[in-house]
Amino acid sequence: MTSLSDVADIVIGVDTHVDTHTAAIVDTATGAVLDQMTIPTTPTGYEDLLAWAGEHSPARAWAIEGTGGHGAGLTRVLARDAEVVFELDRPQRIARRHGAKSDPLDAVRAAREAMSRPVRGTPRAGGQRQALSVLLAARRSAVEAATIAQRQLFSLIVAAPETLRATLGQATGTERVQRAATLRAHRSDDVETATTRHVLRTLARRVQALTAEAADLEKQITVLVKAWHADLLDLFGVGPIVAATVLCAWSHPGRIHSEAAFAMLAGIAPIPANSGRVTTRYRLNRYGDRQLNRAIHTIVLSRQRYDATTQAYTARRTSQGKTPREIRRCLKRYIIRDLYRILESGPPTA
């Protein structure tokens, strides 16, 4: 990537917080701090920041921490005015001298880090991507809450009075939830049985409500995925949730500069772990987007179970001495390559 000093006179680093943002202007030629400013996170504050930046140089770039979080509002305003914005999602912070830390210092560090990075990330897009991200977050919380409620339901049934265990003990999964949701109070119940019966019914109905909520959110996700990149759903093992996760991580054409970078983002690219005479050692990459990594893992498991071609590949690599984990890593790399080519080629035209 071109050095920032070749395309911008100043870099404005922004340290973002809930109520305020602190910005620092750094000269790209010398690295000197030219000015600093703190604004409230309001539309007026964002306009004041833009006016302040305009007083220094029109050839500028912005380095913002958390463009999808605390800095989302400012990022939208900058995108509206076609400003050049770089994302510092997880900044590689330099060692603070004597432990010094403040919002202005962090803003300066953000600007200087953008200048020093060989590859600078751009913010994820809004619109369809942000809509999918919101739906995925809501569905994920509903599924997790339903899972917790089901575990609590099972645990309470195990220790429940015998009359309730006789009704629910042999049931499993959905049937257990349905039976528990229809429990009714009995006059003959003692206080323990009555209370347990009421709690079991409450938990079961909570599971049903959360399951219905997750299903409704998945329908909305499916509609958005089909409208944006329906061709992803044609790939074996790719359902609407996996496709939406991939789209949210990718965001838009050109954001991820290569297929290798997409693999690194997914935590799939192997990391060299060589030292001395050992030159062929690699370790597992546990960085990157873990939701994307999970989505790719889901595709691999689905194909190994149901796809004949993948099963044949797994058998061949097993005969060559590869372990199941190594085979899955190879499959993930092939899958991420196919996904990247489809995403960057653009959605199919009718």
Score class of each variant (00 low, 15 high):
D6A: 13
V7C: 09
A8K: 03
V14G: 06
D15E: 10
D15C: 02
D19S: 10
D19A: 11
H21D: 07
A24I: 11
D35H: 15
Q36F: 01
M37N: 13
T38E: 09
P40E: 12
P40C: 01
T41N: 13
T42S: 13
G45D: 07
Y46E: 09
E47R: 04
G54I: 02
H56N: 06
P58K: 07
A59L: 11
R60L: 14
G66A: 06
T67C: 15
G68M: 05
A72K: 08
A79G: 14
A82N: 13
E83K: 03
E83M: 11
Q92F: 10
R93V: 09
I94D: 06
H98G: 01
G99D: 06
S102D: 14
L105T: 02
A107V: 11
A110K: 00
R112S: 02
A114P: 05
M115D: 02
P118R: 12
V134Q: 12
L135N: 10
L136F: 02
S141T: 15
A146S: 12
Q150K: 15
F154L: 10
L156I: 09
L156G: 00
L156F: 03
V158Q: 12
V158W: 01
A160E: 13
R165N: 12
R165L: 11
A166W: 07
A166F: 09
T167Y: 11
L168C: 03
Q170R: 12
A171I: 04
G173K: 07
R176Q: 15
H186M: 11
R187L: 04
D189C: 03
D189F: 12
R197N: 07
L200F: 06
L200V: 04
R205L: 14
R206V: 01
Q208F: 06
E213C: 01
A215G: 08
L217T: 00
Q220N: 08
T222R: 15
A230G: 07
D231R: 07
L232G: 05
F236A: 14
V238A: 07
V246N: 05
S251V: 00
S251E: 05
E259W: 02
A260Q: 15
F262A: 00
L265K: 03
A266Q: 08
I268C: 04
I268Y: 00
I268W: 02
A269H: 08
A269P: 09
P270Y: 02
P270N: 06
I271G: 03
S275G: 08
S275R: 10
G276H: 11
G276V: 05
G276Q: 03
T279Y: 01
N285L: 13
N285G: 13
N285Q: 12
Q291P: 08
L292M: 05
L292G: 05
L292Q: 04
A295R: 03
I296D: 06
I296M: 09
I299G: 04
I299M: 14
L301V: 11
Q304E: 08
Y306M: 02
D307I: 03
A308P: 07
T309K: 12
A312N: 09
R316H: 10
R317W: 13
T318F: 06
S319W: 05
S319D: 15
Q320Y: 08
T323R: 13
E326C: 00
R333L: 10
Y334F: 13
D338Q: 14
D338C: 11
Y340H: 14
L343Y: 01
G346R: 06
T349E: 15
